[in-house]
């Protein structure tokens, strides 16, 4: 369960990101869509949950734990449980697809091993299986920048799945894609939400897509 209690965020430059937000999102496979104009605070809302931004007031509970005070190791433990999908995919363009996907395991892998690219057989299998789920397994060894926008977003979904998250945050996942590709990406997100029972929170700025 995620609970926002009187949550406010004011950026250092004085911009107000959030003001007194109170909301409860139940875990167990909810699919929540947040719609709003750009600048309304959707990104700030979603980025508060994995603490990419830190709210300045109130409390934010994830699994009954106030996450605003988390630091270092505890914060990374929280983040391994929360997958995130970005508008600009945020893949490492010069790395291969499989390396991008397996980076979802970093939170579970020791620093030394991961720097030497040593991942367990299970991790590699998991990464490959997740690429298969978004139907892009044939691009395994392609560099990420050789893929189209829709394909890159599918790779980033596979990366999030490899993280085995309890919650997926998607910040404008289709804003840079054309309508047919957008539908395809949304279809994968919904499918994962239903099959794996992962609570999913999506930011969108199209009402029509949110209605679907």
């Amino acid at each position: 369960m995620i609970e926002f209690r009187e949550l406010s965020l004011i950026y250092p430059n004085g911009t107000e990101g959030l003001r007194n937000i109170n909301i409860k999102i139940n875990e167990g496979g909810e699919f929540v869509v947040i719609v709003g104009l750009s600048g309304a605070g959707k990104s700030t809302f979603i980025r508060s949950i994995n603490r990419l931004v830190t709210p300045t007031n109130g409390a934010l509970l994830v699994e009954n734990e106030d996450i605003l005070k988390l630091k270092g190791k505890d914060l990374r433990r929280l983040r391994t449980k929360i997958g995130m999908i970005f508008q600009s995919y945020n893949l490492v363009k010069r790395s291969t697809v499989i390396k991008n996907v397996i980076s979802g395991r970093l939170g579970y892998t020791g620093t030394f091993k991961s720097i030497l690219n040593i991942f367990s057989k299970e991790d590699k299998l998991l990464a490959y299986e997740n690429l298969k789920r978004v139907n892009i397994e044939e691009k395994l060894y392609n560099r990420a920048d050789e893929l189209s926008g829709g394909q890159q977003q599918r790779v980033s979904i596979a990366r999030v799945l490899t993280q085995k998250p309890k919650l997926i945050l998607a910040d404008e996942p289709v804003a840079s894609l054309d309508p047919p590709t957008s539908h395809q990406v949304m279809k994968y997100l919904k499918q994962i939400n239903q099959e794996d029972n992962i609570t999913t929170i999506v930011n969108l700025h199209f009402i029509d897509m949110a209605m679907e």
């Binding site: 994995n50 990419l52 997958g83 995130m84 945020n90 490492v92 790395s95 939170g107 892998t109 620093t111």
Partner: peptide, 28 residues
């Protein structure tokens, strides 16, 4: 491009992992 570093941090990677996965490939 700092966006990939954000993705690695968001998935629970620590500082050194972010450097080796998101920064080194870009500058190698």
């Amino acid at each position: 491009d700092m966006n990939p570093t954000e993705a690695i941090r968001a998935s629970g990677g620590n500082g050194l992992q972010t450097i080796s996965f998101a920064i080194i490939p870009q500058v190698l």
